[in-house]
Design a protein around this nucleic acid. Structure first.
Lengths: 180, 180
DNA sequence: ACCTGAACACCGTTCAAGT
DNA sequence: ACCTGAACACCGTTCAAGT
């Protein structure tokens, strides 16, 4: 058996485990998704998972990357995301259907460095995305960072606390409009 | 033994357990503070705690109330909290030294209704506090709610992600100043 | 190299038994 | 009414043993 074939097999199995984990984390939450349950969903034994990932937090990070890649693909094709407010609203709506995960990322970031690192990277991505949009709208440079931060905090806040679409829009317009 | 005496004894012991839990939750976090460890700190057996509280989440809520009462007493006496920005900054600083707990409240709110209820009540308190301050500063009524929300989100965001005092101030001034 | 059965140390919680 | 020792069902993780 050539190493190429081996590599492919390994990647496929890892993918199955990560996909199963991503599904369960999204639907049941991190705590409810025991390694035993994830293993069952992926068709392996619990301890087999440890051959592919270091521990449950590393599995969480892999699942998050899996879901993020999927989300970026979708945002790219979303026709209704014309201006910045709508783009952020789309992202908010997307994340709202996965709000379980936000809490988990925050909770595990305090316990596991792998998750904290992922979290930091995610925010860097969000920040640069929003700052770019704000700059395009003519927001002065010295306000860019504070406004981008505030946008992230607003998004996270609205994820942590159920917010109706109208309130969400008014909050975002307050932060993202040049004169707001 | 008259019921009054009994009542006092019970309250004292409950207080010891709750105080021990509040300490450990603050210093080690919720997960690290096992019932066994809390019991040891309070000088009882793990299962004794269940005579006083329903479960670990109810104990968390009792600990949060304990800590909140303490914080309100301190804020009342803080001389440096003159205007609204400074008051919120004081609160932020106070909570920053207890940032463990914020994540726990969010995480457990998804799992336990007692915690979710406490969380909701806490935000109602914060909201009314900020809205009152904003109204005093002349912020128009129709902006009050969105701005109060945004303030809460900003505070929570800065708790979840380490923020230096200067950035914190500029973010808060952006939200809390009438012209911002 | 990959996978498993069995075990380990822990967790929150319960319950029969004591006082 | 209050407290305990012992147990229960679970958890994430490890490890010797198999292929």
């Amino acid at each position: 058996m050539p190493p190429n074939r081996r590599r492919r097999d390994r990647d496929e199995k890892l993918h199955e485990i990560v996909a199963a984990a991503a599904d369960l984390f999204t639907e049941l939450g991190f705590e409810q998704s025991s390694m035993t349950r994830i293993a069952r969903a992926a068709g392996v034994t619990p301890n087999t998972i440890y051959w592919y990932v270091e521990d449950k937090d590393a599995l969480l990070v892999a699942a998050l990357d899996h879901l993020l890649a999927d989300a970026l693909r979708q945002l790219d094709q979303a026709p209704e995301a014309a201006n910045l407010v709508d783009q952020v609203l789309w992202t908010l709506g997307h994340l709202q259907r996965r709000s379980n995960l936000i809490g988990v990322v925050h909770a595990r970031s305090e316990q596991a460095e792998v998750v904290a690192n992922w979290h930091e990277g995610f925010h860097a991505l969000m920040d640069s995305f929003v700052m770019e949009g704000l700059a395009r709208q003519g927001v002065p440079d010295r306000e860019l960072q504070a406004r981008a931060r505030l946008t992230t905090y607003a998004v996270e806040g609205m994820l942590a606390h159920p917010t109706d679409p109208a309130t969400a829009r008014s909050v975002l317009e307050l932060v993202l409009s040049p004169g707001g």
